[in-house]
Design a binder for these strands. Sequence first.
RNA 1: GGCCCCAUAGUCUAGCGGUCAGGACGUUGCCCUCUCAAGGCAGUAACACGGGUUCAAAUCCCGUUGGGGCUACCA
Length: 509
Amino acid sequence: MNNNIRVRFAPSPTGHLHIGGLRTALFNYLFAKKNNGKLILRIDDTDITRSKKEYEDLIISDIKWFDIKYDEFYRQSERKDIYEKYLKILEEKGYVYECFCTEEELLRSKELSINLKKPYIYNGRCLHLNGAEKENLRKKLADAGLVPSIRLNMLKLGCEQVEFEDMVHGKVVFNVKLLGDFVLKTSDNRFTYNFASIVDDIDLGITHIIRGEDHISNTPRQILLCRALGTGCPMFAHISLLYGKDGKLMSKRDFNANLEHYKKEGYLPQAVLNYLAITGNTFIVNDERFSDEIFTSFDEMAHYFDIKRTKSSGAIFSEEKLKFVNEKWLQQLNTDDLIYAIKEKFILTDYINVSDINSINISSSINNTDIESAEIFDVIDYAEKEYGKERLRCIIDFLKNEYKTVKEIILELDNVFLYKGKYNYFDKDITELLFENLKETTGNKPEASGFNEILIKNAIQKISKENKKNIKDIYENLRMALTGKTNGPSILKIAVLLGKERVISKLTI
RNA sequence: GGCCCCAUAGUCUAGCGGUCAGGACGUUGCCCUCUCAAGGCAGUAACACGGGUUCAAAUCCCGUUGGGGCUACCA
């Protein structure tokens, strides 16, 4: 296996990284990992008017959030010398020419083509200008503060068609005549995407270009540039795009295209990646291990990844399936790792405001001396102070198997384990009986040994028998008193995790 | 309009000439159960259409239809 594989992810900092971009980054990362290659992050910011540093920062932090690691980093805005160098090569070979057309002129000729229902192709007018005409036009441009743009001379290249072997689509063929002499360098001295991108790919030794299918029509232009430059060309893999429920391309307008959405809803980064990896893609077939499509680690995912198995058809994004994947990840993730992830990856104040908890709870806190002196940053922090590390671990271990997102876990943690107020009970009699019995039967034994599921169950049965109360009613009442809801995870388990003291206190009328 | 890509259930997919068209999500029912989930079991639902090629086509070829992308001195 070739271990000089180099791939790149090249977002332009003109907005947030969205879910489709993340998928492209992921496929690059998987490919690099699988082949022992390098992943290069390149910020394609040649469009200085639309590019913003804040977006670059956001993109980088998003990539980090998902634990996608890159080996090298570049910014196109810092590589102008390199583009200049390659442009010079083309000039020397006579493959480029100056274009003096103004924006209006080009626009007009384009409109004309549209009206005639003909494809718009640059007419190559400036190719045939003589020296005097050029100087005249150059002056005119200079008056407007512009310089001639530079176009690639397709005629000189002499190719009729370009074909390439796409790693996901197979053979793709384009007719060169329909491409037109495209611009390499603009009249305001910027290099265009098509030029800068492939020059970087060549210069940085990129071996495989894995990008979205929307770039497939740029590919022939870039291949032509490779030929003009006389260099080899990287391999291409155009992966299918992600679509919304309406069948249209996911765009920044879609709320679930924004990665912020997944952080706020409490999806684990691993789960999002896992989901993205399996949609529009297949790993190993006929292997039961992957029948439910859940991986246990990124390395495992990379190991079984094969770009050639990527589907060439587009895929509709399904948050339902993502939720399922997230649920599985929650279940399989080691509890300590989960707690770490919750603390590191999520902004818990999105779910619960710590100051709210504090104002409600601290005054009535059981061990309020500890709490008041401690610095509390978030819910987990607070819960740790309340329950201790070990106990909190048990609670999270319990909750992670009951809920589907981190958000749900945190909400439940707050609602039943941290809330110190009392919920309304259904039945006063039953509540009193529960209070008496649970207080009595457990006596003064320490919580750990005395307060367990069997004991509570027995107490409930005893209450039922002796007082002719319906078992279900007693459970329901206990649940209501402890959680304020009529349904949820095992109330026995919840009671045990809460501990005798808290349970008794909630049952006090 | 032109160019390119794509087409198996509601969704993601397996399938590479002969399968009862397989799996997953969802959904429905049952079991479990203090409730809701989870889990277990069972059910539901698909080869866009029309021509070829072939003894045989979801699979190969052509066309049609449908969807999508691109069509800039944006990336």
